[in-house]
Design a protein around this nucleic acid. Sequence first.
RNA 1: CGGGGUGUGGCUCAGCCCGGUGUAGAGCGCACGGUUCGGGUCCGUGAGGUCGGCGGUUCAAAUCCGCCCACCCCGACCA
Length: 570
Amino acid sequence: MRYSRLFNQTLRTSPAQSEAASHQYLTQAGYLRPLASGIFAYLPLAQRTLRNIASIIREEMEAIGGQEVSLPIVHPAEIWQQTGRWYTITAEMGRFKDRNGHDMVLAMTHEEAVAAIVHDVIQSYRQLPALIYQIQLKWRDDPRPRAGLIRAREFTMLDSYSLDRDEEGLEVQYQAHYNTYHRIFERCELPVIAIQSDSGMMGGVQAHEFMYLNPIGEDTIMLCSSCSYAANRQVATFQKDHNSSEDLKEVEKIVTPEKKTIADLVEFLQISPKRTAKAVFLMAEMHGTEKLVLALVRGDMELNEAKLAHAIQASGLRPATEEDILLSGAVPGYASPIGIKNTLVVVDDQIPHLRNLTVGANQSGYHLKNVNFGRDYQTDIIADIVSAEEGFLCPQCGHPLSSQRGVEVGNIFKLGTFYSEQMECQYLDENGASKPIVMGSYGIGLGRLMACIAEEHHDENGLCWPLQVAPYNIHMLSIKDKDGAVQPTAEDLYEQLLAAGISVLYDDRDISAGVKFNDADLLGMPYRITISARALSNGGIEIKSRSNETSHILPREQVLPYLQKIASRH
RNA sequence: CGGGGUGUGGCUCAGCCCGGUGUAGAGCGCACGGUUCGGGUCCGUGAGGUCGGCGGUUCAAAUCCGCCCACCCCGACCA
């Protein structure tokens, strides 16, 4: 491609409205233009990069037996109603009516659509296992898009769906994806770690996320430096301490005027927050109705809403208002499970092992000392509902955990039979018995992946693409000379490279050398070749790798074979 | 949804506080001419703007007031 024909415009200054390096450079170098919040146009350089990422993905998916399909991005509401997600997912789903007034959905993901097709295609165990995948657009009306492609509302995603007879089959395909995803990210030269994760709105039983560790990320990952433990903070567990050797003491009502927070209370009573329990009130969306939930956790712990939602099978949580709380008979600031009604009480699994805690008396200005689970109150639901924090002890080895931020570039889920049951995807086994297909679903965000690669591979001058994803392998530029030997040489070499099938961007513009060099650095092709009078008089043509400061001169006739060797690594 | 910030040509911004310089400015980019030719050369000419929108105040609004919209950042939220 001749630069003079390239559809793009680099910017001298990076746009002010971006913080992430990837966003800045992708915009400044003319890969990307915003159209609306979280909605982007991909210009030719970005499109080529994405295409390269996509071909890596296709190769690797085909290698584990994947077959590519293309599912619609507009769905009839019926299939989403069938799985219930029409009702459980709210503002994030794009909906509209067609001309006949039918409710339609913009695909956020494709489990429903896949299941609808699988329902028609798969009849027999002879057709299983199967693996289908697509690289397709998604729409999620995210409440807060940010950092350019890191979190967009419209985005392209690889999503694959495994279909198996049973759990064993699913395990095989899950493992295959686990390994393949590592290979895909490796080929893109993006370092990632696989961590345990929440299955969120997808439902399902087991899940891993592939995280690119970087402060720009919005997920918090708990890591153990002495063993392999790594988990999303939403699900990370840790070793909890107990004091169950203490004797039970008598409950004692104490006066605590205006001590509505744990901080005030422990200051007033001069006790450790570990000797208190706090009650957090939330309204939970459960099976279409709202219910008040009291979550009881140790005073120094933080409630983890993802864990809580999981424990009570809630589809959504919101903070309870004062009015909500008063209806239960509890007193905000002085609340506890003792004596409240019409409330779902969830107790953190540490609490039953803690004795003689101080909790609210459900009476303004009073707390209760020496309260004990079992003796003084009961509940049906005991679960791990607190967040792991930096310094808490690793659940596997007891070493203190650390935390880091990360970007989720991929994930794999064992869906099990949820969707196949909802959508009636069944097959007949050898005995003629009808059984639900066991499904898995797996995804990689392509735009996000491209942004993460840019984030990982850039310097103060611009992007530095890895060879396999770079829009062009070679950035060739000529520097105009007096006697005019440069231009014909450059044209000639360019034609030769094209004929050899090497992907090359040739800066043929009639502008100063500095501009060409700066643009070459900004655009970030892995190799730069310079044709100039100086290089020619030094015996040939200059070659420099983008990530390396030094260049070297190669005789004219050796250039093509040299570049062919580089390109063959593509 | 809560908090903060910003909207002036393709990009970065000045002007606004304290209304009036008469066709609204600069740099970059773009077009044309010249100049230079290994790290965004220099000079000249030129095109390009409903000053986010609507309403109000005023003899007069980019500037003051009100409402709305968009975008960015933090939080809530989120495969």
